[in-house]
Simulated assay, not measured.
Amino acid sequence: MFSTRTGHRFFRQAEPDACGSFHPNGLAVIISTLVVCWWTLIEAALDFVLIDSDTALATSIATRLILVVSGGAVVLESRIALTVFCFLCAMSVLALASAVALQFNEPLLRPAVCLVDSATKALFLGCAFISSTKSNARHWRNDSLAFAPDLVSPRVRSADKTFRQTSFKGD
């Protein structure tokens, strides 16, 4: 059932980027992506009740389908899916943030749905940002000459069986 290379036989591992380094999505990113997709599917079901126009319903279902498909690509670790999904979530949060205050004049269901939608997408964006900064910090190198491997002398065992740091003066 489990593969040593990918971790699971059904999911392939993400391919290396242009630099040849591999940056897998973190568990928090995958879970928050699934939460966003799950809430999007719940919203699609609520659209059948809340939207009266056929064209508005078709547009809403199509946009939610695009979001769910791109979220599925993030879970399967497609190459640019995380960037596309982050963009879609960020644009959605920016569009919904200005509309939340206007929806409090309507019944409580619409502002509650809008607030939960914004919160789940903001959660995903936060997880994606933290995951990207941790993966960048993991691959960060100290280019200082003081830590160059050829300048640090090796530790050798002395006669009394303790380790000591040798100096560059030949002792």
Rank of each mutant, 00 (worst) to 15 (best):
M1C: 09
S3K: 15
T6K: 04
G7S: 05
G7P: 01
H8A: 10
F11E: 14
E15M: 07
P16K: 08
D17W: 11
A18P: 00
C19E: 14
G20V: 04
F22C: 11
F22S: 10
P24A: 06
L27D: 14
L27A: 15
A28N: 07
L34S: 09
V36P: 01
W39C: 07
L41N: 07
I42V: 15
A44G: 13
L46G: 06
L46H: 01
F48E: 07
S53N: 14
A62S: 12
R64Q: 14
G71V: 01
G71I: 00
G71C: 02
V74H: 00
L76S: 07
A81D: 03
A81M: 04
L82T: 03
F87N: 05
L88A: 06
V93Q: 01
A97Y: 08
S98Q: 11
A99T: 03
A101P: 00
Q103Y: 13
Q103R: 11
N105W: 08
P107F: 05
L109G: 03
D117V: 01
A119H: 03
T120N: 07
F124P: 00
L125S: 02
G126R: 10
G126I: 13
F129W: 11
I130C: 01
I130T: 10
S132T: 10
T133M: 11
T133H: 12
S135P: 03
D143K: 13
S144Q: 06
A148Y: 15
P149N: 07
L151Y: 14
P154A: 13
R155Y: 12
S158C: 13
T162A: 15
F163C: 09
T166M: 15
